[in-house]
Simulated scan of single mutants.
Amino acid sequence: MADTIVSGMAGRYATALFELATEAGAVDSVKADLDQLSVMIAESADLARLVKSPVFSAEEQLKAISAVLDRAGISGLSGNFVKLVAQNRRLFALPRMIVDYAAIVAAHRGETTAQVTVATPMSDAHLAALKETLAEKTGKDVNLDVTVDPSILGGLIVKLGSRMVDASLKTKLNSIRHAMKEVR
Rank of each mutant, 00 (worst) to 15 (best):
A102I: 02
A107T: 11
R163M: 11
A86Y: 03
K140M: 05
T138P: 04
L37V: 01
A103H: 12
L17C: 04
Q115E: 15
P54C: 09
K63R: 15
R109K: 14
M164W: 01
L47A: 07
R49P: 03
Q61S: 14
R96L: 14
V105G: 00
V68Q: 10
V6M: 02
Y13D: 05
V82D: 09
T133E: 13
A58M: 10
G161H: 07
K172Q: 14
R177F: 07
E60V: 13
T147P: 05
A67E: 15
V68W: 05
A42T: 05
V39E: 07
A26R: 10
F81I: 05
G154H: 05
L144D: 09
N143T: 14
A179L: 09
A93E: 15
F18M: 04
M180L: 15
R12K: 13
D166W: 01
A93I: 11
G155W: 00
D100S: 09
K31Y: 12
A16P: 00
V105R: 00
L91K: 06
L156K: 01
K31T: 13
M122E: 10
V30S: 03
S175T: 11
T112P: 02
R12F: 00
A21R: 00
V116H: 02
A42Y: 06
E59R: 14
A26K: 09
G139H: 12
M122D: 04
L91A: 06
Q87L: 14
D33Y: 07
D70C: 05
D3I: 08
D3L: 12
R163K: 13
E182M: 14
Q36H: 11
A24P: 04
A114H: 03
D70G: 15
M122V: 14
D141V: 15
E59W: 07
G79V: 02
L156N: 04
L160H: 02
K172C: 08
R89G: 07
V118K: 00
K137R: 14
F92D: 13
K170A: 12
R71C: 00
I41M: 13
H126A: 15
I5K: 12
A24C: 02
A67I: 10
H126E: 15
S57G: 11
I152F: 03
S75M: 09
N80W: 05
N174M: 11
L94C: 08
V148C: 04
R163H: 01
E132L: 02
I74A: 03
K181V: 12
